[in-house]
Design a protein around this nucleic acid. Structure first.
Lengths: 369, 369
DNA sequence: TTGAAAGCGCTAACAT
DNA sequence: ATGTTAGCGCTTTCAA
């Protein structure tokens, strides 16, 4: 049989409750007994029984991680890296990490965890709200709800996209296109917004012919991001030829590169391109992709910490942590354009580029982790 | 407060034990009371408390999934797809899936699960043996131990590689190279073995100059598989020019394609190539990659089932389920070589190509799931 | 077929 | 500082 707390108590010659106190570092145990208890516990190879502890404490000491299965298999392993960050924190805090793809029986799962990390913006809103109504501590990662106050960890898409487009503008580009596999995605629409703001800031006109996305009907396979990017780029090239393109993510950028190559254009000489995410693929395109780095691992860590804090203090105000993306310049955006293009008077610089340097921005002021 | 079994009992007007029996479909409850209990349980929204159940039953109703963090982030999402298969089965059976990367505190984790799925061959053998000695039900996926009898689910690498190389031989190739990011990997060494057997079967001489692998020192980053494949191919090209190459996995094949392109050779006309895994990348190389498909999802499902069976019957004989890989022909292996090459008398066909059609092969006979 | 009772291993309130 | 006691919510003998 397994070694129980009772066994340890018997060995040391104290009551079980004393052992419990000692093991949980609670006050009210003399240094002498505590060390004796710790020693014998170790010697006996005592490992606490999680079920019993959970039952007594009315907690499970475990966090759930819920993700849309489609998203999970994204080739860039986006949510995996988030998961890794989460795992690290749960590990440190002695919590279990219960993994689940978004299928039925959510509530059943939910009962078995102290809190739930909901990753990605493809989770059904009804699911989220159902969980919220049940009073289960929640945190959204790479997602947020407009009106329902739930803690969240998100990417600063608007300023990230702004930075990407500003980078192109600074290089001298004046006709900058935007492509995305689709536009009805939370992240992508925010990145589109950042694109527009940057155009505005640099005095470049918005031209709808410079914006394209993939087919309306989604295949559902996330790995088709590339294909959709390719189609979007083909469409864009038919409408108008930009000198640069900002793609809403790396997958789309990779697809775009194919379309561009098929069209016989050189990158970055004839067409520069910037992606978003800095996933695996960005270091494997030809040429290497300039992109906005998203700190996935850190997002996962922060999400886990926020959730644990929420569990500890359920009534604290709702928080949002926004991670800024970081410009990673590689070959695909190329060098400056020729002088004659750059010095065109129509290309004005913004008074002040709004580059967020703060890593964390909370809804109600500065937040630091 | 949560609805408990006691509440249901009180509502129906029976004893808690009866409710327990009814809910667990145990014999000895009249149809009348059972349906009454089920109805009120549903009406009250009763969800059993996992901790209490676990404590009483001395089981946790949860399985652990352990994977090397390096491997987890492989860009081809190999273990993720296995994880997905596992998740599906645990979900169906009402088990929790506890996720963990291979870090310390394994035993602590282990105590909280009924059994452990160990994915990948990069887990420390000492860890595996430690867990085994503790008597924790285990199953290895994409890994197996030579002498220590532990249930496992593996890929039939030898015959898979054989099939891949046979495919090239059938196309008329006579100088077929082999590359791998490294050779000290369980899977890769078995694939090398299959390569050699196919050469033998087709009467092609083994030539060490046709075999190359990446640098001995590993970077540790799994995403460098591509880079290592590239280096391996560069090395191979320096030694001897084959007309075809079998790469031990798709990542290496993708790297090889780069090296081949850099060398100015056309694929498949001048150099044909076949990979292994049929991961994401295989559908994203230029040209598309002929490869051996590995049924990752199914491997995960079978692993979970086997583990649950092992938990239910700890003393049954050890089993190994071997999944055969499936040849997926795409552009990179090309069409048949020209007739004059093909009809060379030195190219003899094997009497009988040993293609496994059986999907499952167990250690002790045919096994079917 | 059903109920009563004990107990799984731990925690926490109350005593001392 | 430590012990005693009473559960946490469920399962499982053992009786009836």
């Amino acid at each position: 049989m397994e070694v129980t707390l009772k066994d340890v108590a018997a060995q040391v010659g104290v009551a079980p409750s004393t052992v419990s106190r000692a093991l949980n570092r609670k006050a009210g145990v003399s240094e002498r007994t505590r060390s004796a208890i710790l020693a014998t516990a170790k010697r006996l190879g005592y490992i606490p029984n999680a079920a019993a502890r959970g039952l007594a404490r009315k907690r499970t000491e475990s966090l759930g991680f819920l993700v849309n299965p489609q998203q999970l298999l994204r080739p860039d392993a986006f949510y995996l890296e988030i998961l890794e960050g989460v795992e690290q924190v749960t590990q440190e805090r002695g919590y279990q990490l219960v993994f689940s793809t978004e299928n039925a029986k959510v509530l059943l799962k939910a009962k078995r965890v102290d809190g739930l990390i909901l990753a990605g913006c493809d989770l059904k809103q009804s699911t989220i709200l159902l969980l919220k109504r049940r009073g289960i501590p929640l945190i959204l990662v790479d997602n947020h709800l407009e009106f329902d106050q739930i803690d969240s960890v998100v990417i600063d898409n608007v300023s990230g996209a702004y930075t990407a487009v500003a980078h192109l503008a600074e290089l001298g580009h004046r006709t900058i296109g935007f492509i995305a596999e689709r536009l009805d995605d939370l992240n992508f629409s925010e990145r589109f917004e950042g694109y527009r703001r940057a155009l505005q800031a640099y005095g470049l006109p918005y031209d709808q012919a410079l914006v394209a996305s993939g087919p309306a009907e989604l295949s559902g396979k996330p790995e088709d991001a590339t294909l959709y990017g390719q189609i979007a780029m083909q469409r864009l090239l038919k409408l108008k030829l930009p000198t640069a393109v900002f793609a809403a993510n790396d997958g789309a950028a990779a697809g775009a590169l194919r379309a561009i190559r098929a069209a016989g254009l050189r990158v970055p000489e004839e067409l520069a391109i910037v992606g978003f995410d800095d996933g695996f693929i960005a270091r494997h395109t030809e040429p290497l992709l300039t992109t906005m780095r998203v700190h996935r691992r850190e997002m996962g860590q922060v999400a886990a910490r926020l959730l644990l804090e929420r569990i500890a203090a359920p009534d604290q105000p709702v928080r949002q942590v926004k991670f800024s993306a970081q410009l990673i310049v590689r070959a695909s955006s190329g060098k400056e354009l020729a002088r004659e293009v750059r010095d065109d008077p129509k290309l004005s610089r913004p008074a002040e580029a709004s580059r967020t340097s703060a890593k964390y921005i909370s809804l109600g002021g500065i937040f630091s982790c």
